[in-house]
Simulated assay, not measured.
Amino acid sequence: MTDGRTGTADRIAEVALRLFTPHGYAGVSMEQVRRQAGVSNGSLYHHFRSRAELVAHLFLGGITEAQELTLRTLSQAPDAEAGVRGVVAAQLNWVEQHPELARLVYSDPHDEVLLAAEPAFGAHNRRYVEIVSGWLDTHMRRDTLTRRPFAVAHALWAGPTQEFCRHWLHGRSPLAPHEAAGDLGEGAWAALTAPGTKRGME
């Protein structure tokens, strides 16, 4: 059962997300959030001391959820191909199911928001990079994936999917994310694999 304190914070966060999605960080005040959430000033500032802290809470929650989905997908993948394709499909599905939160995650956060998200944001990112780079390195050492620096491999893997999602989130794609999963997964696998790699074989 959710306690009153957690329930109030969740309600404030849900209202804030609905407001920030169409209006952006600069376009929403804490007073607007307070009125829409139906809470007192004391309750609002008890949970979130500033607008930056409130958006940081949403941003950190969204990016952590997306990163944990990737890590879970990799932990369950039987081979490199399943991992590469599975992460692409999982991220596309997540964006389609959580468009408001995805818009925030895929935005360029204000410096105040990034500052408010630390040190948790840095800790989550370091853990994500450590696990994903370790997974990539394992398959690179097996010569299943082409040996590349982590930043390059990750960009080849996730970059096209992220770009597609940005277009879809802004209404510029006639395809829903799940409809693009096959082609984007194929592109990611082709970009990461070593020449001569056999599908499903390691």
Rank of each mutant, 00 (worst) to 15 (best):
H57R: 14
M140E: 12
R85G: 02
P160R: 04
H124K: 07
C165A: 15
G182R: 07
P160D: 06
G159V: 08
E202M: 11
R148A: 10
Q76F: 00
T193W: 00
A82K: 08
H23D: 05
A180S: 05
T146C: 11
T146F: 05
R141L: 14
R172E: 12
T144A: 14
D3M: 09
I63V: 14
V39A: 13
T73P: 01
G4P: 04
E65F: 03
A37K: 12
F59W: 11
Q76S: 13
A155C: 14
N93F: 07
A191S: 12
R166L: 10
T73F: 01
H47I: 01
P174V: 12
G62A: 14
L169P: 05
L17H: 06
V28Y: 09
M201F: 06
R199A: 13
A26W: 13
R147N: 04
P160G: 06
S50V: 11
A80Y: 00
D79R: 12
M140R: 15
V55K: 02
Q32S: 06
L175Q: 13
G62Q: 07
R172V: 00
E31I: 09
T64R: 15
A80C: 02
D10K: 10
A80F: 00
F20Q: 03
T193Y: 00
R199F: 07
G187F: 01
E186P: 00
Y25T: 01
V129L: 14
L44C: 10
Y106L: 15
L136Y: 11
A26S: 14
P99G: 12
E186Y: 01
L136V: 06
T8W: 01
D108T: 15
R147Y: 03
H23G: 00
